[in-house]
Simulated scan of single mutants.
Amino acid sequence: MLSRLHRFAALVATLCIALFFTSTLVVELVGTTESIVRIKSLILSPGLWILTPAIAVTGITGAIMGQHRQNTFVVRKKKRMPFIALNGVVILIPAAYFLHHWASLGEFKATFYLVQGIELLAGAINLTLMTLNIRDGSKLHAKASKRTI
């Protein structure tokens, strides 16, 4: 049960980051000012209200399941998680608030685009790390399934 919850939360979190990243890129490249404002608003809410608990559940369930395991896949996942969490708390969440605020005021100045670039870079890093964790989790699950057969 814990494993299923972990997988579901990880998938939701990864899909959120992918959706935020993709929608931001698309709207910045071909969208209107109004569509940028709308995307920034949706990322903030309900986006962060979905992403934040999904990340927390993923981290908590992963920590519980990996508590006493030293498997190569588990060790790699444990090493990535602090970077994912720090990236989210220090860069992605504050950036979402600032970008939403500036967009809602129509302030698309250099600072907006600098923070947008930092957010996209941090999002790409988190998406990559989360995808690697899903890959390693899948290998770990496959390995465990072979043992039970």
Rank of each mutant, 00 (worst) to 15 (best):
S3K: 05
S3D: 05
R4T: 03
L5D: 01
H6A: 10
H6M: 08
R7D: 07
F8W: 05
A9S: 13
A9E: 06
A9D: 00
A9G: 01
L15P: 00
L15G: 02
C16I: 01
C16Y: 04
C16L: 02
L19R: 03
L19F: 06
F20R: 08
F20I: 10
F20M: 14
F20H: 06
F20V: 10
F21R: 01
T22V: 08
S23G: 04
L25W: 10
V26W: 06
V27E: 00
E28H: 14
L29Q: 10
L29C: 00
V30K: 10
V30I: 15
T32L: 00
T32Y: 05
T33G: 07
S35R: 06
S35V: 09
R38C: 04
R38W: 06
S41T: 13
L42K: 06
I43H: 08
I43D: 05
L44P: 00
S45V: 14
S45H: 13
P46M: 03
L51I: 06
L51Q: 08
P53Q: 06
A54V: 08
I55S: 06
A56N: 05
A56Y: 03
V57H: 10
T58W: 01
T58S: 10
G59C: 03
G59L: 13
I60E: 11
I60P: 03
T61E: 11
G62F: 04
M65N: 09
M65T: 00
M65I: 02
G66I: 10
Q67A: 11
H68T: 10
H68K: 12
R69V: 12
Q70H: 15
F73N: 12
V74M: 10
V74Q: 08
V74A: 09
V74Y: 08
V75T: 15
V75C: 02
R76V: 02
R76Y: 02
K77D: 07
R80Q: 03
M81H: 06
M81W: 11
P82H: 08
A85W: 10
N87T: 09
V89Y: 03
V90Q: 00
L92N: 09
L92P: 07
A95V: 07
A95K: 01
A96F: 15
Y97T: 11
H100G: 01
H101V: 04
H101W: 13
W102F: 13
A103K: 08
S104A: 13
S104V: 02
L105D: 04
F108G: 06
F108N: 02
F108T: 05
F108V: 02
T111Q: 09
Y113M: 00
Y113Q: 08
L114T: 15
V115D: 09
V115R: 07
G117C: 07
I118Q: 08
I118Y: 04
L121G: 11
L121H: 04
L121V: 14
G123I: 08
A124G: 15
I125P: 03
I125Q: 07
N126A: 10
N126M: 02
L127G: 14
L127N: 05
L129Q: 01
T131I: 11
T131D: 09
T131G: 05
N133W: 03
N133T: 04
I134L: 15
I134V: 11
S138V: 11
K139L: 14
H141G: 05
H141F: 14
A142E: 13
A142K: 14
A142L: 14
A144V: 11
R147D: 12
R147A: 12
R147Y: 04
T148Q: 13
T148A: 15
T148I: 13
I149L: 08
